[in-house]
Simulated assay, not measured.
Amino acid sequence: MILVFGQTGQVATELARLAPDALCVGRDRADLADPDTCHDLILDLAPSGIINAAAYTVVDRAEEEEALATRINGAAPTAMALAAARLAVPFVHISTDYVFDGAGDQPFPPDHPTAPLGAYGRSKLVGEQGVTAAGGTTAILRTSWVFSAHGGNFVKTMLRLGATRDTLTVVADQIGGPTPARDIARACLTMLDGLRASPERAGIYHFAGSPDISWAGFAREIMAQAGLPCAVKDIPTIDYPTPARRPLNSRMDCTTLDRFGLTRPNWREGLADVLTELGARS
């Protein structure tokens, strides 16, 4: 039995679809703010593999709640990894491009030095460090710009605003790879199987949609595929201030994914599937 931490989030929802026999647990059974409950649940259930698809993801609020974000994103996955190591079962943990500072214009390889810009990135980095230090068979999957037909995300926000406005202003100097949650879920399951077969593949990996694009460019593609006449105007990040700094460069080097037979997903195809599911495709 595969144990999934997360129940209603974007990736967890897709994991439940792709692996209906997996046990997806929410806060009622494992509150990530109480890491010991996560550790004990793993030992009680003794699963054959574990995926952590749960996290504190409210980037701006994390600036005021860094201690809570660090418990959920740092201490909880560390506790999970320690329990997984004790049972000698593989553990896949989802992380983020926010562990980098976003400098330059080249894709970040997995071994690039980390330098988070804010509380959210720092909390996720604590989790990465704890999972690695636990000493088990683990894969950390850093991803970016997640979207799906579920929960709150950029695609759904653009559809809502684009249906009622003639023009939207969207930042154009942040570049990254939009990533369909369904593809992330598939990658997690593939990596879990791969770790069982070849534990030496443990490590940190990057998984992001292709090709890289700006938020403004992504917004234009959403409008085009949805048949919305709303125009998108480019603005720089400085004109859209937020409590937490966003990395300008979220490009990620995903070449080591070939160890698991994985490649970067085409986000335009994933967007078409999401819009179809939402009944929003033109």
Results as ranks from 00 to 15, higher is better:
Asp31Ile: 07
Thr8Cys: 05
Phe100Trp: 15
Ala54His: 02
Glu277Trp: 07
Arg27Ile: 08
Ala30Leu: 05
Pro47Thr: 01
Met1Thr: 14
Thr255Gln: 15
Thr70Arg: 07
Glu221Met: 14
Glu128Lys: 04
Ala79Gly: 11
Val59Ser: 02
Ala202Tyr: 02
Thr237Arg: 06
Asp173Pro: 08
Ile238Pro: 00
Asp166Gly: 13
Thr169His: 14
Ser48Ile: 11
Arg220Met: 12
Ser48Asp: 15
Glu128Cys: 04
Ala172Ile: 05
Gln106Val: 12
Gly121Lys: 13
Pro211Lys: 14
Thr179Ile: 07
Gly127Tyr: 01
Ala33Val: 09
Asp31Phe: 03
Met80His: 00
Glu63Thr: 12
Val89Gln: 04
Tyr56Ile: 04
Leu271Gln: 04
Leu125Val: 09
Ala272Arg: 14
Leu125Phe: 12
Phe260Asn: 01
His39Gln: 10
Ala55Met: 10
Arg160Lys: 14
Leu257Met: 12
Val59Asn: 02
Leu3Val: 02
Ser148Lys: 06
Leu192Lys: 07
Ala46Pro: 09
Asp31Leu: 08
Thr179Lys: 03
Glu14Cys: 10
Thr276Trp: 06
Arg160Thr: 12
Leu195Gln: 02
Ala16Gly: 07
Glu64Leu: 14
Asn249Val: 05
Ala244His: 07
Asp253Cys: 14
Val99Pro: 05
Ala88Leu: 10
Ala16His: 01
Lys156His: 05
Thr13Trp: 02
Ala272Tyr: 01
Met1Glu: 13
Thr179Ala: 03
Trp267Pro: 09
Gly102Asp: 03
Met223Thr: 07
Glu63Tyr: 08
Asn73Val: 05
Gln129Phe: 04
Gly118Met: 05
Asn249Gly: 01
Asn153Phe: 09
Arg251Asn: 01
Thr57Met: 08
Phe5Arg: 03
Ile184Asp: 01
Thr13Arg: 08
Pro107Ala: 13
Cys38Asn: 04
Asp97Ser: 15
Leu248Asn: 11
Asp31Glu: 13
Thr138Asp: 04
Arg142Asn: 06
Thr8Leu: 12
Ala84Gly: 08
Arg142Leu: 10
Asp97Met: 13
Ala115His: 08
Asn266Tyr: 10
Phe207Lys: 03
Val126Thr: 11
Thr237Pro: 00
Tyr205Asp: 00
Ala181Pro: 00
Ala16Trp: 00
Tyr240Leu: 15
Asn266His: 09
Tyr56Met: 08
Asn52Met: 04
Pro109Trp: 11
Ala185Thr: 01
Arg281Asn: 03
Asp40Asn: 15
Asp28Lys: 15
Ala181Arg: 01
Gly104Pro: 10
Ala163Cys: 10
Pro243Arg: 05
Ile94Cys: 00
Ile94Ser: 00
Pro180Lys: 02
Arg142Gln: 09
Thr164Arg: 15
Arg264His: 04
Thr256Val: 14
Ala22Lys: 04
Gly49Asn: 07
Ile50Ser: 00
Pro20Thr: 08
Ser214Thr: 15
Phe218Ala: 09
Ala172Val: 03
Asp183Ile: 10
Glu66Arg: 11
Leu45Trp: 09
Asp21Arg: 15
His206Phe: 12
Gly135Tyr: 08
Arg259His: 13
Glu221Tyr: 05
Tyr120Arg: 09
Pro113His: 12
Leu41Glu: 13
Gln7Tyr: 05
Gly261Pro: 13
Ala54Glu: 00
Arg160His: 12
Ala12Glu: 01
Asp234Leu: 13
Ile42Asp: 06
Pro199Tyr: 05
Ala172Arg: 02
Ala75His: 10
Ala22Leu: 09
Arg29Pro: 01
Gly74Leu: 10
Gly9Cys: 02
Cys254Ala: 15
Cys38His: 01
Gly217Ile: 06
Asp101Asn: 14
Tyr240His: 14
